[in-house]
């Protein structure tokens, strides 16, 4: 079952002045349960592609479909709702809200979805346990290590029960131990719960864990090694 389908995506920045072709006709699809890494050198278009897949940016040309829904037809408010319910985000620099505790950071997204307090609390605790942060629920981001913050970010991304999680260089600011912990958690969730993960990364440790690696260069897919579908 296809979760993401991208057809001939192009993205041109600064089209009126000095055009920069960030993506030049990228087509790919992602099935449910994939653990995919999008790799490539800086400036190859990884983040642009992730932004377009995540509905944060729109393509100059081409079509992006998530769960069968064409994102280009969605208006801003619908797109925000769509992101809320269908996509989980993990950012490079964690991007937790510093004034909220770990539990509140996770609960926020469920509150935006309109879940009851009890449901939010229960799920937040369950997710904190799943990412190994039981007992840290009342800690604010500043009281957690980078690895712990990123695990809270993963829990937050999972809180809305999205179709897939987009992680933009999630291990870039982490040490090896934290990176391995985080990758283990995400791999376990992918294995046991079938959560779809798509990473953009430079990190070889992430690439090694990925079951599919899409390599971008200069705005084009130069290789797509699907180790599950094409062993």
């Amino acid at each position: 079952m296809k979760v993401i389908e991208a057809k001939n995506i192009t993205k041109v920045y600064n089209a009126d002045k000095v055009p920069v072709n960030a993506l030049r006709g990228v087509s790919f699809s992602v099935d449910k349960g994939e653990f995919t890494a999008i790799v490539g050198p800086s400036g190859c278009g990884k983040s642009t592609l992730l932004n377009i897949v995540g509905g944060l940016d729109s393509p100059s040309e081409g079509e992006i479909t998530i769960d069968g829904k064409d994102l280009s037809n969605l208006k801003e408010n619908k797109l925000i709702d769509f992101r809320l319910n269908k996509i989980g985000f993990v950012f490079q620099s964690y991007n937790l809200i510093p004034v909220l505790t770990a539990k509140e950071n996770i609960s926020l997204i469920m509150e935006l979805q309109g879940l009851s307090k009890k449901a939010r609390d229960d799920r937040a605790m369950e997710l904190l346990k799943a990412v190994g942060l039981e007992g840290k629920e009342h800690k604010k981001p500043s009281e957690l290590s980078g690895g712990q913050q990123q695990r809270v970010a993963v829990a937050r991304a999972l809180a809305s029960e999205p179709s897939f999680i987009l992680a933009d260089e999630p291990t870039a600011n982490l040490d090896s131990v934290s990176t391995n912990n985080l990758l283990d958690i995400m791999a376990e969730m992918n294995r046991e719960k079938g959560t779809t993960f798509i990473f953009s990364t430079h990190d070889q440790r992430v690439i090694n864990k990925a079951r599919r690696v899409i390599k971008l260069d200069d705005g084009l897919i130069v290789s797509d090694d699907n180790m599950v579908l094409n062993p």
Binding site: I80, R83, L84, F89, F91, N95, I97, I109, L112
Partner: peptide, 16 residues
């Protein structure tokens, strides 16, 4: 700015 961008990215609408 980054934090507000994140809130809108994860699904907080502009009214909120």
């Amino acid at each position: 700015i980054k934090e507000l961008g994140m809130l809108m990215a994860i699904g907080m609408n502009r009214i909120k």
